[in-house]
Simulated assay, not measured.
Amino acid sequence: MSYMHQTVILSREVIGVLIPAGTRVELPEGADATITQALGGSYTVEVQGHLFRIDGKDADALGFEPTGDIILAADASEEEVTAAVRKQLETVYDPEIPINIVELGLVYDCRLEPAADDGWKLHVVMTLTAPGCGMGDVLVNDVKTKALQVPMVREADVELTFDPPWTQDMMSDAAKLQAGFL
């Protein structure tokens, strides 16, 4: 279902992250919020002329179901866990660009290693489209949070780097097409 430009009334107070500053702001119950983007389980909303990102876990404040659990067999192979992690990373979106971080080319490395407690430790190296982006901490936290939702992933280490700097050439062809670069 498309939620684009749907206006809802916040059913409770909710924390929104101001875009692009990254500042956490308490949005009041009863405020009008226009949904400008609903991707990857999070929402970008406009409230009183400002854009905010609202986590999927708080979707109920917008009148929607919170994001659900990931199902993976208890004896899943490393390849299956890696595929589940990648699928999760494909649900992390830059709040200003409607393209996921994998297709944008922001993920430089993603690998698993055995964890001490019969699970996996994830290592992700990623970048941002712009070094000064105030949403960097939000995106890093999104990657960690979503990766830890994958059964058997016990730890997630996310490193933010700007070497090499991101360029549009790092985008997948599908992302370039979606962004109008092809």
Rank of each mutant, 00 (worst) to 15 (best):
G41D: 04
E113K: 03
D173N: 03
V124D: 08
P66S: 10
D163I: 03
N141T: 14
D60Q: 10
E155D: 14
H123A: 06
T91P: 03
M126Y: 00
E80F: 10
V124F: 09
A73Y: 10
Q168W: 13
L112M: 14
V8N: 09
E65V: 12
L122W: 12
L18V: 07
D169F: 09
S77W: 12
K146I: 14
E90Q: 15
E90S: 07
Q37E: 12
Q168K: 15
L10D: 03
V47G: 13
T91R: 15
T7L: 11
G105M: 02
L182S: 07
I19A: 03
A31M: 10
L39K: 11
D109Y: 06
E79L: 05
L18M: 13
M135S: 04
L177C: 10
L62D: 07
R12V: 10
P114R: 04
T167V: 13
G68Q: 12
P164Q: 12
A174N: 11
L139R: 02
G41M: 03
G68C: 01
P151E: 12
M1H: 14
D173M: 09
S77M: 09
G22F: 07
E26M: 13
I15R: 02
A59G: 07
L182I: 15
E79R: 01
S11F: 05
L148H: 10
P95Y: 02
I15K: 05
T127R: 01
E80I: 01
L72I: 07
I97K: 02
N141S: 15
L27T: 02
P66V: 08
F181K: 09
A61M: 08
R154C: 12
A115L: 00
S2V: 02
P114V: 00
D137Q: 11
I99V: 15
L39W: 08
F52C: 06
D173W: 05
T91L: 10
G136V: 03
K146E: 11
I54T: 05
G132N: 13
G56Y: 08
M171V: 11
K57L: 13
D117R: 01
G41P: 02
V45F: 12
G105F: 05
L139T: 08
E29L: 10
G30S: 13
P164S: 07
C133K: 03
T34R: 14
V8A: 08
L51Q: 15
L62Q: 12
I9V: 15
A33K: 05
P164D: 12
E26S: 08
